[in-house]
Design a protein around this nucleic acid. Sequence first.
DNA 1: CAGTAATTTAAGTTGACACTTACGTAAGCC
DNA 2: GGCTTACGTAAGTGTCAACTTAAATTACTG
Lengths: 106, 106
Amino acid sequence: MEAALKALAEPRRRAILELVADSEMTAGDIASHFDVSRPAISQHLTVLKGAGLVKERRNGTRRLYSVRPEGLSELREFLDSFWRKGLIRLKDAAEREERNKRGGRR
Amino acid sequence: MEAALKALAEPRRRAILELVADSEMTAGDIASHFDVSRPAISQHLTVLKGAGLVKERRNGTRRLYSVRPEGLSELREFLDSFWRKGLIRLKDAAEREERNKRGGRR
DNA sequence: CAGTAATTTAAGTTGACACTTACGTAAGCC
DNA sequence: GGCTTACGTAAGTGTCAACTTAAATTACTG
């Protein structure tokens, strides 16, 4: 999850993910969508692959990249559980607040 | 969302979030849970606040921090939609694959 | 008002990381 | 076997961010 977060925190890598989310693409095709050098994209792809967010398939001299949604599951679960926990706390706090108001009025 | 991702990418900040997820805590209390200096924690709290993941309430010279779940919504929605999109692509790819197999067999 | 406690702000250091150019590698093509 | 195409890897550079210590700020307290 650590790796996924670090990978997603970089805007260019999110852009790459958006690209390969629609269809499998070669490294070169991906690179042509950006104004940085190909090695830079290659390095980003390595990071994304390391985080399990992308998978690579070789075909001759080409390397085809596509999204790997399972790579997001752990992070999604973390966020969901965290979000729920936070909401419960908010609700409890509101109720305590309400009790205090009532108690104070008496 | 950018800010939330950058904030979450740092392990110490996630740990801080876990702490204040259960109950409101002062900056000092939070800092005492880690082996870095208080200024370091203060800086992390500034980042978390900037990302909307935490809210600050002042009480005298104390500052009480608590989690702010709404700060996660945008990121959660992004991940969810992205995840769904990815799964659909996987399913489509599997179906195409299946059709190709059948076609090849005939 | 002087003193202290809780915390942030300032300034400087170090390490990580996104980038660059140059080179290496592996698969098709004449 | 050389040549080209499509990549990755190596090595170096600049920027940013997480940390440190020292100083400033803000509110309480006798």
